[in-house]
Design a protein around this nucleic acid. Sequence first.
DNA 1: TTTCGTGCAAAACCTTTGCAAAGTG
DNA 2: CACTTTGCAAAGGTTTTGCACGAAA
Lengths: 150, 150
Amino acid sequence: MSACDHHLTHKNALEKLKKSSLKTTDARKAIIDVLAHEHGPFTSEEVYHRIKQGRKKEICDLVTVYRCLANFEKIGLVRRCDFGDGSCRYELDVEDHHHHHIICKECRKVELLDICLIDGLERLVREKGYHNVTHALEFFGVCSACHEKV
Amino acid sequence: MSACDHHLTHKNALEKLKKSSLKTTDARKAIIDVLAHEHGPFTSEEVYHRIKQGRKKEICDLVTVYRCLANFEKIGLVRRCDFGDGSCRYELDVEDHHHHHIICKECRKVELLDICLIDGLERLVREKGYHNVTHALEFFGVCSACHEKV
DNA sequence: TTTCGTGCAAAACCTTTGCAAAGTG
DNA sequence: CACTTTGCAAAGGTTTTGCACGAAA
Protein backbone atom coordinates (compact mmCIF):
# COMPACT_ATOMS: atom_id res chain seq x y z
CA MET A 1 0.00 0.00 0.00
CA SER A 2 1.43 3.39 -0.97
CA ALA A 3 1.60 6.53 1.18
CA CYS A 4 -1.14 7.96 -1.01
CA ASP A 5 -3.43 5.01 -0.27
CA HIS A 6 -2.87 5.50 3.43
CA HIS A 7 -3.94 9.10 3.13
CA LEU A 8 -7.11 8.19 1.23
CA THR A 9 -8.01 5.41 3.64
CA HIS A 10 -7.54 7.76 6.56
CA LYS A 11 -9.72 10.46 4.98
CA ASN A 12 -12.48 7.97 4.14
CA ALA A 13 -12.48 6.63 7.69
CA LEU A 14 -12.84 10.11 9.19
CA GLU A 15 -15.68 10.87 6.80
CA LYS A 16 -17.49 7.68 7.79
CA LEU A 17 -17.14 8.74 11.41
CA LYS A 18 -18.57 12.19 10.73
CA LYS A 19 -21.51 10.79 8.79
CA SER A 20 -22.35 8.46 11.69
CA SER A 21 -24.06 9.41 14.91
CA LEU A 22 -20.75 9.09 16.76
CA LYS A 23 -18.88 12.20 17.84
CA THR A 24 -15.39 12.98 16.60
CA THR A 25 -13.08 12.88 19.61
CA ASP A 26 -9.30 12.85 20.04
CA ALA A 27 -9.37 9.21 21.09
CA ARG A 28 -11.32 8.18 18.01
CA LYS A 29 -9.07 10.17 15.70
CA ALA A 30 -5.98 8.58 17.28
CA ILE A 31 -7.41 5.08 16.81
CA ILE A 32 -8.21 5.77 13.17
CA ASP A 33 -4.66 7.13 12.69
CA VAL A 34 -3.21 3.83 13.85
CA LEU A 35 -5.55 1.68 11.76
CA ALA A 36 -5.00 3.74 8.63
CA HIS A 37 -1.22 3.98 8.78
CA GLU A 38 -0.14 0.56 10.01
CA HIS A 39 -1.51 -2.62 8.58
CA GLY A 40 -3.28 -4.67 11.20
CA PRO A 41 -5.46 -6.24 12.18
CA PHE A 42 -4.75 -5.15 15.77
CA THR A 43 -6.17 -6.06 19.15
CA SER A 44 -7.47 -3.23 21.35
CA GLU A 45 -4.32 -3.55 23.42
CA GLU A 46 -2.11 -3.25 20.35
CA VAL A 47 -3.95 -0.15 19.19
CA TYR A 48 -3.64 1.30 22.69
CA HIS A 49 0.12 0.82 22.80
CA ARG A 50 0.64 2.22 19.33
CA ILE A 51 -1.26 5.35 20.34
CA LYS A 52 0.95 5.78 23.39
CA GLN A 53 4.16 5.31 21.39
CA GLY A 54 3.45 8.12 18.97
CA ARG A 55 2.69 10.80 21.55
CA LYS A 56 4.24 12.36 24.63
CA LYS A 57 1.22 12.09 26.92
CA GLU A 58 -1.63 9.61 27.13
CA ILE A 59 -4.46 10.20 24.71
CA CYS A 60 -6.90 7.71 26.15
CA ASP A 61 -7.51 4.70 28.31
CA LEU A 62 -7.46 1.08 27.15
CA VAL A 63 -11.16 0.82 27.98
CA THR A 64 -11.85 3.67 25.60
CA VAL A 65 -10.13 1.79 22.80
CA TYR A 66 -12.34 -1.24 23.48
CA ARG A 67 -15.45 0.92 23.42
CA CYS A 68 -14.46 2.88 20.33
CA LEU A 69 -13.60 -0.20 18.30
CA ALA A 70 -16.88 -1.88 19.25
CA ASN A 71 -18.75 1.24 18.12
CA PHE A 72 -16.68 1.50 14.96
CA GLU A 73 -17.73 -2.01 14.08
CA LYS A 74 -21.40 -1.09 14.46
CA ILE A 75 -21.14 1.72 11.92
CA GLY A 76 -19.10 -0.41 9.51
CA LEU A 77 -15.88 1.54 9.97
CA VAL A 78 -13.88 -1.51 11.04
CA ARG A 79 -14.08 -5.25 10.50
CA ARG A 80 -13.55 -7.65 13.34
CA CYS A 81 -11.25 -10.67 12.92
CA ASP A 82 -11.06 -13.59 15.26
CA PHE A 83 -7.97 -15.75 14.94
CA GLY A 84 -8.94 -18.04 17.78
CA ASP A 85 -6.17 -17.03 20.18
CA GLY A 86 -8.37 -15.49 22.85
CA SER A 87 -8.48 -11.91 21.63
CA CYS A 88 -10.12 -10.28 18.65
CA ARG A 89 -8.58 -7.88 16.18
CA TYR A 90 -9.83 -5.00 14.10
CA GLU A 91 -8.91 -3.51 10.75
CA LEU A 92 -10.43 -0.71 8.70
CA ASP A 93 -13.29 -1.94 6.57
CA VAL A 94 -12.30 -0.91 3.05
CA GLU A 95 -15.32 -1.91 1.02
CA ASP A 96 -13.81 -2.51 -2.39
CA HIS A 97 -10.72 -4.28 -1.11
CA HIS A 98 -11.89 -7.54 0.38
CA HIS A 99 -9.09 -9.84 1.48
CA HIS A 100 -8.28 -12.62 3.92
CA HIS A 101 -5.43 -13.63 6.20
CA ILE A 102 -2.82 -16.33 6.63
CA ILE A 103 -1.81 -16.73 10.26
CA CYS A 104 1.32 -18.62 11.29
CA LYS A 105 0.40 -21.17 13.95
CA GLU A 106 3.78 -20.65 15.63
CA CYS A 107 4.70 -16.96 15.57
CA ARG A 108 1.20 -15.56 14.82
CA LYS A 109 2.55 -13.51 11.94
CA VAL A 110 -0.30 -12.28 9.73
CA GLU A 111 0.02 -12.19 5.96
CA LEU A 112 -2.57 -10.91 3.50
CA LEU A 113 -4.24 -13.09 0.91
CA ASP A 114 -5.61 -10.75 -1.71
CA ILE A 115 -8.20 -13.04 -3.19
CA CYS A 116 -11.88 -13.44 -2.51
CA LEU A 117 -14.00 -16.00 -4.30
CA ILE A 118 -16.71 -16.18 -1.70
CA ASP A 119 -19.25 -13.87 -3.34
CA GLY A 120 -21.16 -16.78 -4.86
CA LEU A 121 -21.41 -18.50 -1.48
CA GLU A 122 -22.63 -15.32 0.19
CA ARG A 123 -25.40 -15.17 -2.37
CA LEU A 124 -26.29 -18.78 -1.50
CA VAL A 125 -26.54 -17.85 2.16
CA ARG A 126 -28.86 -14.95 1.29
CA GLU A 127 -30.99 -17.33 -0.76
CA LYS A 128 -31.38 -19.42 2.39
CA GLY A 129 -33.15 -16.41 3.92
CA TYR A 130 -30.31 -14.71 5.80
CA HIS A 131 -30.02 -10.94 5.82
CA ASN A 132 -27.05 -8.67 6.37
CA VAL A 133 -24.66 -11.44 5.40
CA THR A 134 -20.93 -11.25 6.08
CA HIS A 135 -18.20 -13.86 6.29
CA ALA A 136 -14.78 -14.63 7.72
CA LEU A 137 -12.16 -16.75 6.01
CA GLU A 138 -8.80 -17.36 7.63
CA PHE A 139 -6.00 -19.75 6.78
CA PHE A 140 -3.67 -21.15 9.41
CA GLY A 141 -0.29 -22.75 8.88
CA VAL A 142 3.31 -22.84 10.01
CA CYS A 143 5.27 -20.18 8.11
CA SER A 144 8.50 -21.16 6.38
CA ALA A 145 10.64 -19.28 8.93
CA CYS A 146 9.11 -21.22 11.82
CA HIS A 147 9.21 -24.46 9.86
CA GLU A 148 12.97 -24.12 9.35
CA LYS A 149 13.61 -23.49 13.05
CA VAL A 150 12.53 -27.06 13.87
CA MET B 1 -27.58 -37.26 9.40
CA SER B 2 -29.08 -40.70 9.96
CA ALA B 3 -28.90 -42.79 13.12
CA CYS B 4 -26.50 -45.07 11.28
CA ASP B 5 -24.15 -42.18 10.52
CA HIS B 6 -24.15 -41.22 14.17
CA HIS B 7 -23.12 -44.72 15.09
CA LEU B 8 -20.31 -44.76 12.55
CA THR B 9 -19.04 -41.36 13.60
CA HIS B 10 -19.05 -42.44 17.21
CA LYS B 11 -17.15 -45.63 16.46
CA ASN B 12 -14.56 -43.80 14.36
CA ALA B 13 -14.00 -41.26 17.09
CA LEU B 14 -13.41 -43.93 19.71
CA GLU B 15 -10.98 -45.69 17.39
CA LYS B 16 -9.05 -42.47 16.84
CA LEU B 17 -8.81 -42.10 20.60
CA LYS B 18 -7.51 -45.62 21.05
CA LYS B 19 -4.92 -45.21 18.30
CA SER B 20 -3.63 -42.04 19.97
CA SER B 21 -1.42 -41.82 23.03
CA LEU B 22 -4.40 -40.66 25.09
CA LYS B 23 -6.07 -43.02 27.51
CA THR B 24 -9.70 -44.00 27.22
CA THR B 25 -11.49 -42.66 30.28
CA ASP B 26 -15.15 -42.23 31.22
CA ALA B 27 -14.92 -38.47 30.79
CA ARG B 28 -13.49 -38.80 27.30
CA LYS B 29 -16.09 -41.34 26.28
CA ALA B 30 -18.88 -39.11 27.56
CA ILE B 31 -17.55 -36.13 25.61
CA ILE B 32 -17.32 -38.16 22.42
CA ASP B 33 -20.89 -39.38 23.01
CA VAL B 34 -22.15 -35.82 23.05
CA LEU B 35 -20.19 -34.75 19.98
CA ALA B 36 -21.20 -37.79 17.98
CA HIS B 37 -24.91 -37.73 18.75
CA GLU B 38 -25.79 -34.06 18.74
CA HIS B 39 -24.67 -31.73 16.03
CA GLY B 40 -22.52 -28.94 17.41
CA PRO B 41 -20.24 -27.26 17.40
CA PHE B 42 -20.36 -26.90 21.18
CA THR B 43 -18.42 -24.88 23.74
CA SER B 44 -16.78 -26.74 26.60
CA GLU B 45 -19.56 -25.48 28.85
CA GLU B 46 -22.24 -26.78 26.48
CA VAL B 47 -20.60 -30.20 26.33
CA TYR B 48 -20.34 -30.22 30.11
CA HIS B 49 -24.04 -29.49 30.58
CA ARG B 50 -25.09 -32.06 28.02
CA ILE B 51 -23.05 -34.69 29.84
CA LYS B 52 -24.76 -33.81 33.12
CA GLN B 53 -28.25 -33.92 31.61
CA GLY B 54 -27.92 -37.45 30.30
CA ARG B 55 -26.76 -39.04 33.56
CA LYS B 56 -27.81 -39.24 37.18
CA LYS B 57 -24.47 -38.32 38.72
CA GLU B 58 -21.60 -36.11 37.59
CA ILE B 59 -19.19 -37.76 35.20
CA CYS B 60 -16.55 -35.07 35.21
CA ASP B 61 -15.62 -31.52 35.97
CA LEU B 62 -15.86 -28.60 33.53
CA VAL B 63 -12.07 -28.27 33.66
CA THR B 64 -11.77 -31.83 32.45
CA VAL B 65 -13.93 -31.01 29.44
CA TYR B 66 -11.63 -28.09 28.61
CA ARG B 67 -8.57 -30.30 28.89
CA CYS B 68 -10.04 -33.20 26.95
CA LEU B 69 -11.22 -31.05 24.08
CA ALA B 70 -7.83 -29.34 23.83
CA ASN B 71 -6.16 -32.76 23.70
CA PHE B 72 -8.71 -34.05 21.20
CA GLU B 73 -7.81 -31.16 18.93
CA LYS B 74 -4.12 -32.09 19.08
CA ILE B 75 -4.80 -35.64 17.86
CA GLY B 76 -7.19 -34.43 15.15
CA LEU B 77 -10.27 -35.89 16.77
CA VAL B 78 -12.08 -32.54 16.90
CA ARG B 79 -11.96 -29.29 14.96
CA ARG B 80 -12.06 -25.98 16.74
CA CYS B 81 -14.42 -23.22 15.55
CA ASP B 82 -14.27 -19.62 16.64
CA PHE B 83 -17.39 -17.59 15.97
CA GLY B 84 -16.03 -14.44 17.54
CA ASP B 85 -18.35 -14.36 20.54
CA GLY B 86 -15.72 -14.90 23.22
CA SER B 87 -15.76 -18.66 23.46
CA CYS B 88 -14.61 -21.36 21.10
CA ARG B 89 -16.52 -24.41 19.99
CA TYR B 90 -15.61 -27.94 18.98
CA GLU B 91 -17.04 -30.52 16.60
CA LEU B 92 -15.85 -33.95 15.57
CA ASP B 93 -13.35 -33.76 12.74
CA VAL B 94 -14.84 -35.98 10.03
CA GLU B 95 -12.14 -35.94 7.38
CA ASP B 96 -14.13 -36.56 4.23
CA HIS B 97 -17.00 -34.29 5.17
CA HIS B 98 -15.67 -30.77 5.14
CA HIS B 99 -18.30 -28.10 5.72
CA HIS B 100 -18.79 -24.58 7.03
CA HIS B 101 -21.29 -22.71 9.17
CA ILE B 102 -23.87 -19.96 8.94
CA ILE B 103 -24.35 -18.20 12.26
CA CYS B 104 -27.33 -15.95 12.95
CA LYS B 105 -26.08 -12.62 14.29
CA GLU B 106 -29.17 -12.37 16.53
CA CYS B 107 -29.97 -15.78 18.00
CA ARG B 108 -26.60 -17.48 17.33
CA LYS B 109 -28.33 -20.41 15.66
CA VAL B 110 -25.81 -22.46 13.68
CA GLU B 111 -26.69 -23.96 10.31
CA LEU B 112 -24.46 -26.12 8.14
CA LEU B 113 -23.23 -25.13 4.71
CA ASP B 114 -22.22 -28.31 2.97
CA ILE B 115 -19.90 -26.83 0.38
CA CYS B 116 -16.18 -26.35 0.34
CA LEU B 117 -14.39 -24.70 -2.57
CA ILE B 118 -11.35 -23.64 -0.64
CA ASP B 119 -9.01 -26.45 -1.65
CA GLY B 120 -7.44 -24.34 -4.40
CA LEU B 121 -6.75 -21.52 -1.98
CA GLU B 122 -5.19 -23.89 0.55
CA ARG B 123 -2.82 -25.04 -2.15
CA LEU B 124 -1.94 -21.41 -2.82
CA VAL B 125 -1.11 -20.90 0.85
CA ARG B 126 1.12 -23.99 0.80
CA GLU B 127 2.88 -22.59 -2.29
CA LYS B 128 3.65 -19.48 -0.25
CA GLY B 129 5.73 -21.73 2.03
CA TYR B 130 3.24 -22.55 4.79
CA HIS B 131 3.07 -26.03 6.25
CA ASN B 132 0.29 -27.85 8.04
CA VAL B 133 -2.32 -25.58 6.46
CA THR B 134 -5.89 -25.40 7.69
CA HIS B 135 -8.63 -22.83 7.31
CA ALA B 136 -11.81 -21.47 8.83
CA LEU B 137 -14.71 -20.09 6.86
CA GLU B 138 -17.83 -18.82 8.59
CA PHE B 139 -20.78 -16.84 7.33
CA PHE B 140 -22.73 -14.50 9.55
CA GLY B 141 -26.20 -13.09 8.96
CA VAL B 142 -29.60 -12.49 10.49
CA CYS B 143 -31.75 -15.59 10.03
CA SER B 144 -35.23 -15.21 8.56
CA ALA B 145 -36.92 -15.93 11.91
CA CYS B 146 -35.01 -13.11 13.61
CA HIS B 147 -35.48 -10.83 10.63
CA GLU B 148 -39.27 -11.19 10.82
CA LYS B 149 -39.35 -10.37 14.52
CA VAL B 150 -38.27 -6.78 13.76
C1' DT C 1 -27.38 22.78 27.17
C1' DT C 2 -28.23 18.33 26.20
C1' DT C 3 -26.31 14.33 24.92
C1' DC C 4 -22.43 11.54 24.29
C1' DG C 5 -17.67 10.02 25.56
C1' DT C 6 -14.13 9.01 28.93
C1' DG C 7 -11.37 7.44 33.08
C1' DC C 8 -11.07 4.71 36.84
C1' DA C 9 -12.15 0.79 39.43
C1' DA C 10 -14.33 -3.25 39.71
C1' DA C 11 -16.75 -7.09 37.86
C1' DA C 12 -17.69 -10.66 34.51
C1' DC C 13 -16.35 -14.10 31.68
C1' DC C 14 -13.74 -17.79 29.56
C1' DT C 15 -9.73 -20.49 29.96
C1' DT C 16 -5.48 -22.22 32.07
C1' DT C 17 -2.55 -23.88 35.84
C1' DG C 18 -0.79 -26.33 40.27
C1' DC C 19 -1.06 -30.00 43.00
C1' DA C 20 -2.58 -34.11 45.36
C1' DA C 21 -5.48 -38.09 44.65
C1' DA C 22 -7.45 -41.51 41.54
C1' DG C 23 -7.47 -44.16 37.40
C1' DT C 24 -5.48 -46.47 33.05
C1' DG C 25 -2.78 -49.81 30.39
C1' DC D 1 3.86 -50.20 38.44
C1' DA D 2 4.77 -46.03 35.81
C1' DC D 3 2.40 -42.66 33.84
C1' DT D 4 -1.67 -40.11 32.68
C1' DT D 5 -5.89 -38.04 34.01
C1' DT D 6 -8.89 -35.80 37.15
C1' DG D 7 -11.04 -32.54 40.77
C1' DC D 8 -10.73 -28.62 43.24
C1' DA D 9 -9.27 -24.14 43.97
C1' DA D 10 -7.07 -20.40 42.42
C1' DA D 11 -4.97 -17.48 38.99
C1' DG D 12 -4.64 -15.46 34.33
C1' DG D 13 -6.13 -12.86 30.48
C1' DT D 14 -9.49 -10.35 27.83
C1' DT D 15 -13.55 -7.72 27.68
C1' DT D 16 -17.52 -5.37 29.85
C1' DT D 17 -19.94 -2.43 33.13
C1' DG D 18 -21.16 1.45 36.58
C1' DC D 19 -20.73 5.88 37.67
C1' DA D 20 -19.16 10.59 38.04
C1' DC D 21 -16.82 13.92 35.41
C1' DG D 22 -15.56 16.15 31.06
C1' DA D 23 -16.20 17.24 26.16
C1' DA D 24 -18.69 17.69 21.57
C1' DA D 25 -22.48 19.53 18.68
